[in-house]
Simulated scan of single mutants.
Amino acid sequence: GHMASGSLGELQESQSRLEAATKECQALEGRARAASEQARQLESEREALQQQHSVQVDQLRMQGQSVEAALRMERQAASEEKRKLAQLQVAYHQLFQEYDNHIKSSVVGSERKRGMQLEDLKQQLQQAEE
C-alpha cells in the first residue's frame, strides 16, 4: 500500500506541476499575443508617421521649390531693372554730350556771329571814313 500511496502522491504532484506549467504557458502565450498586438500597433503607427513624414517632406520640398522660383523671379526682375538703369544712364550720358556740344557750338557760333558783326562795323566805318 505504501508504494501505491507514494506513486499516487507523485502523480498528484506531477499533475499539479503540469497544471501550473500549463497556466504559466497560457500566461506566456497571452503576453506574447499582447506583445505581438502591440508590435502590430507600433508598426502601423510607424507607417502612419512615415507617411506623414514623407508628406511633410514633400510639402517642404514644394515650399522650397516655390521659394526658389520666387527668388529666380526676383533676380530676373532685379537684373531687368539694372539693365533699364544702365540704358537710362547711357541715354542720359548721350543727351548730356549732345547738350554740351550744342551749348559749346552755339556759344562758338554766337561769338563767330558777333565777330562777323564787328568786321561789318569796321568795314562800314572804313567806308564811311573813305
Rank of each mutant, 00 (worst) to 15 (best):
Q89A: 02
G1V: 10
N101C: 03
E68V: 06
E37Q: 11
Q51L: 09
E13P: 01
S110Q: 04
L28E: 07
R61N: 09
L42Y: 05
G9W: 12
A69C: 01
A91V: 05
L85N: 07
V108W: 03
E74R: 09
A70S: 09
A35N: 08
G6E: 14
R46S: 06
M62C: 02
L85G: 07
L42T: 05
G1R: 14
L11S: 13
Y92W: 04
Q41E: 09
E19I: 10
R31F: 01
L88D: 09
I103M: 04
A69I: 02
E68Q: 11
A35W: 01
V55A: 14
Q15H: 15
L18W: 15
Q12K: 15
L60D: 10
E45G: 04
A48T: 08
Q87H: 06
E10C: 05
Q65R: 08
S66M: 07
L49C: 08
E68W: 01
A91P: 00
S5F: 13
K104E: 03
Q63T: 06
I103V: 12
L42A: 13
G30L: 01
A20M: 04
T22S: 12
G1F: 10
E37S: 11
M3H: 15
Q56E: 10
A35P: 01
E10A: 13
M62S: 14
R17D: 12
C25Q: 14
V107W: 02
L42N: 11
L11F: 15
S16T: 13
A34M: 10
S79H: 05
V108L: 03
S66K: 07
V108I: 05
G64A: 08
R33Q: 14
S79F: 00
R72P: 00
H102V: 01
V57F: 03
A4N: 12
A69H: 06
E47Q: 13
R61A: 12
Y92F: 02
K104M: 00
A86M: 05
R33T: 09
R46G: 02
Q12E: 15
Q89T: 04
V67L: 12
E74W: 03
Y99N: 06
E45C: 04
E37P: 00
A20R: 09
T22H: 14
E19S: 13
Q94W: 03
V107T: 08
Q15T: 15
R33S: 07
R31W: 00
A21H: 07
E24I: 02
M62F: 06
G9T: 13
H2N: 09
